[in-house]
Design a protein around this nucleic acid. Structure first.
Length: 540
RNA sequence: GCGCUCGUAGCUCAGUUGGAUAGAGCACCACCCUCCUAAGGUGGGGGUCGGACGUUCGAAUCGUCUCGAGCGCGCCA
């Protein structure tokens, strides 16, 4: 049993003796910043005193009087009624053996029955992935990794809008570029895609088809669209792989629309639709929306919303307990429409959740970098990765709350010093690996019984928090808190390294205990970095 | 006008769902290698938590109002 559960059970037991029924899961243990306040502190007495007509301090005194002291060296009442708990050192030292035994599974949550579908990136197949997609990819994948590590069953899904107006524009733009490649005059439409990446695709199309597509026929146009989508998607998948993001499922809008599935869905929504000026509206205001939304235009074609609803219902039909859509923050108006539409079918509002990812500004010093070097309109994911690397990019994007605007500091991401958080964490891991290698002949003492320095104890306590951190971050989908955990772990590791000499030929027993702590810390650092999709190098 | 996301140190951001003296990193200043990676560590200055009122033992956190920023409010996606 881990220490926190062990303590919580003791507290619950004590509360029972006083006549209060409290669940162990409702007991909140804190880690006081000041050592004088113990290894753990809790405010249970303040929270529950009123229920039985006690003053908080009196209840706290009662708890101290009756609590089982096994494993506890000291427990005292402080301030308005906090309980400060001091552990016996053996209790803390036992963490080391626990971590080493579980190794790559330390921190992994128990298997949950919840099946979660996370849809993210879902970029239109009309151009390269850019900065915004990169942040969505980093956050989306980190959320998935968090969920998986915490024990949830997850599906990573990418939705491809291959049927709307956007792909028609892309097809027309590609056609113009192709004609240019064939030495003919043609202009990319004003509202088309002017990026130079389409020139590359046009060359590829020409290599495949020669000049067979020159004639301006419907059939040829459809070929430009299908080939364009295929090639764009190939690039997107290649860039995602480079970024270490892999999807379980790619879903196509064209598939969603097949076999009258959208028509059927529309039919099912009949009780919630009405006609206005030739267009069909969905009564989303009956639920959470502030405005009804058109689903069929007056020309008979669907708005984007209709196939989107069909698609979400199809996802739910596959048996997920929760859908998560990771979207750019400018899509926030979309959330209530979709949620309302699902509620019309009887789903609870919580069946779907949205992660709104705020914009990224790329900064070089005080100057914002807006344009891509290659003449494109924005900086692409590929460029970013080539310049600063996958690890730094993923870490920086995942290390901030999705809802907050992010300034990505180019120079900082490249810096090889403690200023750069990624470097700082990876360096801590490499240092631990080096110590373990150098001290390999000592062997490791899993009991870690010689650890008692402040730097050692602080590190032990932090290692102990890892499983709870994972559990909590997964529930709230906040990978940036894992990054915060990593930074603290790195700081404690470096402090330990400086203050405690690990390999000491004159004191083998102490060395064995400290090497065990190194091993445990190395495991936790590696597991934590892995949650963010960042490598843990063994040497630097 | 309505809605969403925000407003915390000079800068970038946390703040464990209402707890003790509001934290971290960067930047700045001063220290620490005869010894495992100084690619590191220790210490220091720096705050009207945008503002006001309210809720209670207790508010950066919850409520109302207000000021400011960004985004959204289409038979676009």
């Amino acid at each position: 049993m881990d220490i926190e559960t062990f303590l919580k059970n003791k507290i619950v037991g004590a509360l029972q003796k006083v006549g209060l029924d409290v669940l162990a899961s409702d007991v909140i243990l804190e880690h006081p910043k000041e050592e004088t306040r113990g290894d753990y502190a809790t405010s249970v007495a303040l929270q529950h005193a009123k229920k039985i007509g006690f003053k908080p301090r009196d209840l706290a005194e009662q708890i101290v009087a009756v609590i089982d002291r096994d494993g506890i060296s000291k427990i005292e009442v402080a301030g308005p009624g906090f309980l400060n708990i001091f552990l016996k050192s053996e209790a803390l030292q036992s963490i080391v053996g626990d971590v080493i035994a579980k190794n790559e599974n330390y921190g992994r949550g128990s298997k949950k029955a919840t099946k979660v579908n996370v849809e993210f990136v879902s970029a239109n197949p009309t151009g390269d992935l850019h900065l915004g997609h990169a942040r969505c990819a980093a956050i989306g994948d980190a959320i998935c990794r968090l969920y998986e590590f915490a024990g949830y069953e997850i599906t990573r899904e990418f939705y491809i809008n291959d049927a709307g107006a956007q792909v028609n524009k892309m097809g027309a733009s590609l056609q113009a570029r192709y004609l240019n490649e064939c030495g003919l005059n043609a202009e990319v439409p004003a509202d088309g895609y002017h990026g130079l990446d389409l020139v590359d695709l046009a060359k590829q199309v020409k290599d495949l088809y020669g000049d067979k597509l020159i004639a301006d026929t419907k059939e040829n146009f459809l070929t430009f669209i299908s080939e364009g989508i295929r090639l764009e998607l190939e690039k997107i998948k290649r860039d995602l792989a480079l970024f270490r993001v892999h999807f379980d499922l790619y879903s196509y809008e064209s598939e969603v629309r097949k076999d009258g599935k959208v028509e059927k869905t529309l039919e099912e929504y009949k009780p919630f639709t009405y006609l206005d000026q030739g267009a069909t509206y969905l009564k989303t205001t009956a639920f959470l929306d502030d405005k009804d939304r058109p689903v069929v235009k007056s020309d008979g074609s669907y708005t984007y919303l209709m196939p989107d609803i069909t698609y979400h219902l199809q996802k739910l039909g596959r048996g997920y307990d929760l859908l998560v859509d990771v979207l750019g923050a400018d899509h926030h108006g979309y959330t209530n429409r979709m949620r309302s539409a699902l509620m019309m079918k009887g789903y609870p509002a919580e069946i779907i959740d949205f992660e709104l990812v705020q914009v990224v500004r790329l900064m070089k010093g005080d100057v914002e970098v807006k344009m891509s070097k290659r003449g494109g309109t924005t900086v692409t994911l590929r460029e970013l990765v080539e310049e600063v690397g996958v690890d730094a990019t993923r870490y920086f994007f995942a290390a901030r709350a999705a809802t907050s605007h992010l300034d990505f500091d180019y120079d900082l991401a490249l810096e090889q010093s403690s200023s750069n958080p990624v470097f700082y964490a990876q360096y801590a891991h490499a240092r631990l690996c080096k110590l373990l290698e150098t001290g390999a002949d000592f062997g490791i003492d899993i009991s870690a019984r010689n650890l008692r320095e402040t730097a050692e104890i602080n590190l032990l306590k932090h290692l102990q928090e890892f499983p709870n951190t994972i559990e909590g971050c997964a529930k709230t989908r906040e990978p940036y808190k894992v990054a915060a955990y990593i930074q603290k772990l790195a700081a404690l590791t470096h402090a330990f390294y400086t203050e405690c000499r690990v390999i000491d030929r004159d004191n083998a027993e102490l060395s064995q205990s400290r090497l065990a702590l190194c091993k445990a810390s190395q495991i936790v650092m590696r597991n934590a970095l892995n949650v963010l999709g960042v490598n843990a190098p063994e040497q630097m």
